[in-house]
Amino acid sequence: MTTSSPLPAALSVNAMSAPLVAQLIEHHERLRVDVTRTAGGTIIVDAGVNAAGSVDAGVLIARICMGGLGHVTRRAAFDSDPLWPTFIEVHTSHPVLACLGSQYAGWSLSATKEQTGGKKFFSLGSGPARALAGKEPLFDELGYRDRHDRGALVMEVDRLPPQVVIDKVLADCGLAPENLVIAVTPTHSVAGTVQVVARVVEVALHKTHVLGVDLSEIVDASGSAPLPPPAPDGIAAMGRTNDAILYGGRVHLTVKSDAAAKRLAAELPSLNARDYGQPFADIFKSFNYDFYQIDAALFAPAEAWVSSLESGATHRGGKLNRALIGAQWHVTQETP
């Protein structure tokens, strides 16, 4: 499907995220990330492969991922009955462009072991440089392409990209090597965990797209999800970050019509999925680690609040799954 009104071409997600990229590089020591250059001049920001990274780095990278159009913060939540003590909160007044036109991890980047001279490489690229390349059919549906002489890409992978993949990104984006910045955030790293959880609104936008609801209905979006503790390996980390959204994520969407508000409140939440109720890591393993075999309806926040501009009414659907979050993240109540 397409949006009934194309995204504003005058807004460049790469231009708007450039100041944030500059901050990431300038303050790399404080953020505990490593910054290096390839022989051609491309900047690689290691936010968790060899570098320690940090929550602050993850927040900044999440903002870069949203093309400079999103507010991302960490919030402490020590109330009387907390789901979890720390949350990531997200807000954007340009939800379709920020989330689908920039943040969505939709650009498949791979290389064979022959091309790398070692082992094969695969990553899904996210962030504003996607809109320069425009390799995904989604950009035709959105009616958006960016034009800028600098770009930033985020890769959620546990190794730095080989030169053959960097060359592909440069060619597809039409960038000079020195004008590309690639940030690498493994899922099991601190920064990687943050930037995945910060996709709580993006997941809602993508589910809206899957449901066939006109994306131009959505005029504002915010959300939150618990920030899980570090995990010992990639699969466990993937499970925790997905569980944070699927079972602990909340979104509040503002839409134009009552019909869209009612439908999204009812159909958007993850509990509509066939596989709902199991930890994501277990689901992933049961399908032999093939994302495409998992019911697509599962990839959604746990709870949706949807407000209609047409009537002023708000509709609510879904629910948080406190028991699953507590059990999977090994929460135990210590007594004296």
Score class of each variant (00 low, 15 high):
L246E: 07
L246I: 11
Q195F: 11
A244P: 13
I182G: 06
V196E: 04
A236G: 05
T241N: 00
N179E: 11
P177D: 11
Y247L: 14
L246Y: 05
V213I: 12
Q195C: 07
V190K: 06
P228K: 00
L175I: 10
V219P: 12
A231D: 04
D233Q: 12
V213H: 14
D220N: 01
R240W: 09
P226D: 03
V219R: 15
P232N: 04
L211I: 04
L205W: 02
T185F: 08
V203R: 08
E202L: 08
V210P: 04
L175E: 10
L180P: 08
A204N: 11
L211V: 12
L211Y: 12
I235R: 12
A176C: 06
A225F: 01
A221S: 06
V201E: 02
P230T: 05
Y247E: 12
A236M: 09
Y247V: 13
P229N: 02
T208Y: 00
K207A: 02
V197Y: 05
S189K: 13
P226G: 01
V203P: 00
V181L: 07
V194E: 06
V219Y: 03
V190L: 15
A204F: 08
V213E: 00
A221M: 09
K207D: 08
T187G: 04
R199N: 13
M238S: 05
L215P: 03
D233I: 09
H209T: 07
M238D: 05
P230G: 04
A231Q: 13
P229W: 13
L246K: 03
T241R: 02
G248S: 15
L180V: 13
T193A: 06
C173Q: 09
P229L: 10
D243R: 09
P186T: 03
A176Q: 07
P186K: 06
M238P: 12
V213F: 01
I235Q: 10
A231G: 13
A225E: 08
T185N: 15
P186N: 05
V219D: 00
V203F: 10
D172M: 10
E178M: 13
D233N: 15
V201Q: 01
D172R: 13
H206F: 03
L211C: 14
L215M: 07
G223L: 02
C173M: 15
A204V: 03
L180F: 15
I218C: 00
G192H: 14
I245Y: 01
A191N: 14
V219A: 15
I218S: 02
T241F: 09
A225L: 07
V200N: 04
G174D: 02
C173K: 12
Y247A: 06
K207M: 07
L211K: 10
A244D: 14
V181D: 04
M238F: 05
G234S: 12
G249C: 10
V203A: 10
D220A: 05
G192W: 10
A231Y: 01
G234F: 08
D220E: 08
I218L: 07
E217K: 03
P228T: 09
D214F: 05
Q195I: 06
E202A: 05
A191H: 03
D172C: 11
G174P: 12
D172K: 08
I218P: 02
A221L: 02
A244L: 12
T193V: 09
D214P: 12
